[in-house]
Design a protein around this nucleic acid. Structure first.
Lengths: 214, 214
DNA sequence: CGTAGCAACCTTACGTTGTAAGGTAGGCCC
DNA sequence: GGGCCTACCTTACAACGTAAGGTTGCTACG
């Protein structure tokens, strides 16, 4: 693992790999050093500290999102493609949302990315006022994720759990039952992140379009 | 600070106070112990560990949000009031979003809260299918915050910064200029979180209403 | 009344984290 | 060849969460 010399880029690449494989929490200086066949303190000759490492990671993540740009015509179509591309990046790097959320200062590249979004809108006739509002409405959708507070990845619940749940959560229980019954493919159909992401995205995009052309 | 006996509730209250005053990062076991005039390890007789402390904090936060329920008529109005109330709670506790985002397992009370939302909708004639979609669309709005990735709390930039910014961020710079010129009160008008929260909230609520009554 | 038991709190200590401080080996230049 | 710079290593420290076990005082019961 040692061999080649260290670089800031090799460092960030290794950090990304560790985070992809084992999550952000496993990304410690010592662990990253080991990954590169080097002592932890050697990393400090290429990065000033752990915060800088995370900043670099965030920057690389946003660049990866920017690179997902895929054309389209009109602000709506363009943004839609952009955000769907962003989502693919976040699916590849599940630590992305948490990282961006935890960063104490805004990654500078994020401003550049938002600038592109504003330019996409105003360049197509959208007013600055609405572009500004839209920027806030997109929120984390622009980065390809919705705050997944409700993530039922928990797996199958036991029967006693289900009966207990039915008492405490009558409406959700009924909803799950109704939805499962409705859907042809019970696995893909229930809480399919992609479908719901697109639903919400179109809800916002259509809403914005309606606001600007009343 | 010592005097009275420790309680799980006193513990959580003190933890909330520390987080309110100095942020989540300042909330360590030793610090919390000191706050209560007690050694860190004494806390372990009331809570099994730090994770449990954070779980308790999250639970209390969600309960505070639930208590903001303020009536209204019809699912749209009811949810709107609810979410605006939730926002007030998050304004009081700026560490809220980060805490919920960082929790590795979903706080159980969140399911109860979501159940209330589903009940509010289906009780007013909304289909389970749409209620489910809506739940995902609300995302973090249901908890009163939008992922504030773009938070210009940085303060006034220097002149050189501004000219540098104009080169790299032409569209954002123009937008800021246009907006500042437009607005009567330049401080409240520019990036007023409340205004933008309501704008996005109504965008989603109106969109959902339109989907169900085509 | 004595004593067993238990709840609440303290003491000590360990492993892990980020990182400050300073050491060392090799290549380059004058 | 002697100084200097770059890249890496060694050692050490403070702060963190917490395991293990000690101390104290109240309470219940034979």
């Amino acid at each position: 693992m040692a061999q080649e010399r260290l670089t800031r880029d090799r460092l960030l690449a290794a950090a990304t790999a560790v985070a992809d494989a084992e999550g952000l929490k496993a990304l410690t200086m010592r662990r990253l050093g080991a990954e590169l066949g080097v002592e932890a303190m050697s990393l400090y000759h290429h990065l000033p500290g752990k915060e800088a490492l995370l900043d670099g990671l965030a920057d690389a993540l946003i660049r990866e999102i920017q690179d997902q740009n895929r054309g389209g015509t009109g602000w709506k179509d363009r943004l839609r493609r952009r955000f769907l591309g962003a989502r693919e990046v976040m699916v590849r790097h599940p630590w992305g949302p948490a990282l961006l959320g935890a960063r104490s200062s805004v990654p500078p590249r994020l401003f550049v990315y938002f600038d592109e979004i504003v330019g996409t809108m105003t360049g197509d006739g959208v007013s600055y006022r609405l572009a500004h509002r839209a920027l806030h409405s997109f929120g984390s959708m622009a980065l390809g994720f919705t705050q997944e507070l409700f993530r039922p990845e928990a797996g199958v619940a036991s029967e006693t759990d289900i009966t207990a749940m039915a008492e405490v959560l009558p409406h959700v229980t009924a909803m799950v039952a109704a939805e499962l019954h409705d859907v042809t493919d019970p696995v893909l159909g229930w809480c399919d992140g992609q479908t719901e992401f697109e639903f919400t995205l179109d809800l916002i995009l259509d809403g914005l379009e309606r606001v600007m052309t009343p």
